[in-house]
Design a protein around this nucleic acid. Structure first.
Lengths: 334, 334
DNA sequence: CTGAAAGCGCTTACAG
DNA sequence: CTGAAAGCGCTTACAG
């Protein structure tokens, strides 16, 4: 049905191999021959069948990207950056939504899905390091996010501890002393939440401010989670003059709820977040937050993964890269 | 390198065909044989090579989705819904970002990319109907959004006119008489902007309120576009008591800018949008808007496209479906 | 510089 | 119910 390389070869009066050479930019082709082939391609409207190429070459030129859900702004923005980074290197991205479910994460790691991609960018949310290592095949894998940390796995990291400390220090510098943290458990030490919480604690300690576990509230990292958490905190009669949401979504939810409940932000209560999604700039008041280096993360993750895919190193050293962060001071906590 | 069906066949002591039968759930297999094959699959860790299957069957079980950019919330939320709808029907989605550029849109329509998908969901932003028809191959294509309307093309539509009229009528019912429209040109009549503008005009006419072209401001459908547009309007000394942003992003940008400039919303100026992205609910004040039926659009578009892909109708009638909309009244315009 | 041939891993008539 | 064989459209040694 479709036009094949064979048709082109016949039309141009050359062999299959010559057409292939032209398509793959093999250097040593007589210009006249090349032109004839190109003309035939044009005339017949030939297009490479990428499926056939993949089967033969064993490469799909596609990267898998496993994340919870594209409706979460941070992931959507990251996915956009990753797709651009991949595209500029000749790769496409196949997104898989895990919905934050272990089954889906496992399926993405080992299922047939893997045969469609040359490597995987994976933002684990439920699976642990060992499970990932067990489930993952031999194909290259680069982790993003910090729910998992393991010296055996390639990953691109955010400076969670340092960035969270910077946010906290900024709040402290603004005179806040009772800073509520939304999105972590008091005892947590690992994963994004634990690392950010430890940065918060470190900043408090540096400033000689006492840590109060009553100000640490667990909640989902979503707008409605932040809203509920801050409402609960107010309800409980807790005394606080600032809120640090461990991501922007929940910080924005908290901000919204505070305003609904008649609190003045930042006069009575300052609010800060983490991620610097675009929405943060346009909230009212605009949200103070920290940019974790999203574009850099996307670039480096794609670069590293492609290096693994195309590299011929036998047993490469594990690489764990870190992106630079930047505090963004806005109206919600000046 | 990888385990193939042949390996499984040998291990199970059957022919290739039998393995294929088991994998594809062919009914008439002796249970014992089937079990032996399944055991072998399990033991060897066999996984179907989807690339090979695609080459042979001519189907990739992938749908292409072409949109401007995933960092735009409405598209991200729509993409998420579309991926879920496709997934539940056994299809994957390959997203292509056009960046709102004609070259990319054309490439997505006709390039090699097409060979990776069985059909395309396309949100055109720059290409016209004729260009789309010319560029598109013979593979199924379903359009989303309303920048293009043409009786020859399958599409799933938003009730732009009616929904915009509903928003406008709501603002009028709230006593507003000078309603600025952001995101359209005065003369526009086609595309999402034109259709929404015409709904606005119709609602004004119904209420006996005069249409004032000076209140119609063209701007990009993004947060910063809306912010700039409303700032320009205030600058020009225009007199208005409400703002209707033709999508939520620009309405939220306008809302933010109004508050920055010290206007009280909704007391002095009411604000309404279009799309009902999640962010709208958590803006402060929360944004009145209209939900265009995103989930329904996703479902029906996927359903229609798959029907085209799998259907065996020779020359099916063109189908143009419409989703139901719903006004969401919130604080920005009560 | 170019040709003839093998083979990537499946599915699918065609036999039996 | 199951086997042997062809072929999807490419790429890639191997020759020349």
């Amino acid at each position: 049905m479709a036009v094949t390389m064979n048709d082109v070869a016949k039309a141009a009066g050359v062999s299959l191999k010559t057409v292939s050479n032209v398509i793959n930019n093999y250097e040593f082709i007589r210009p006249a021959t090349k032109q004839r082939v190109l003309d035939a391609i044009d005339e017949l409207g030939y297009e490479t069948n990428l499926t056939a190429r993949s089967l033969r070459s064993g490469k799909t030129k596609m990267l898998g990207l496993v994340l919870a859900d594209l409706s979460i702004p941070y992931y959507a923005e990251l996915a956009s950056d990753i797709m651009k980074a991949a595209w500029s290197r000749g790769y496409r991205v196949l997104v898989e939504q895990s919905g934050n479910e272990a089954e889906h994460e496992k399926a993405a790691l080992q299922g047939q899905f893997r045969s469609l991609t040359d490597g995987l960018l994976f933002i684990p949310l439920t699976l642990g390091a060992q499970q990932i290592i067990d489930a993952a095949g031999k194909k290259p894998l680069v982790l993003l996010g910090e729910f998992v940390q393991d010296p055996r796995l390639d990953m691109v990291l955010i400076q969670n501890h340092e960035a969270a400390a910077a946010v906290t220090t900024h709040l402290l510098a603004g005179g806040r002393r009772r800073i509520a943290v939304l999105g972590a458990d008091d005892g947590e030490t690992t994963g994004s939440a634990g690392l950010r919480l430890s940065g918060y604690k470190a900043a408090l300690a540096d400033a000689g401010v006492e840590y109060d576990p009553a100000l640490v509230v667990r909640c989902e990292w979503r707008r409605d989670g932040g809203a509920a958490a801050v409402a609960g905190l107010l309800d409980s009669g807790a005394d606080f003059d600032a809120v640090f949401g461990l991501n922007d979504a929940l910080a924005l939810g908290a901000l919204h709820e505070l305003l609904v409940l008649g609190k003045r932000v930042p006069e009575e209560i300052a609010v800060a977040g983490f991620d610097d999604i675009e929405e943060a700039r346009f909230a009212s008041p605009s949200l103070t937050t920290v940019a974790p280096g999203r574009a850099e993360i996307a670039e480096r993750a794609v670069e590293l993964l492609i290096e693994r895919i195309e590299g011929n190193m036998a047993a490469p050293e594990v690489r764990q890269l870190q992106a630079a962060f930047e505090l963004r001071v806005r109206k919600s906590a000046t």
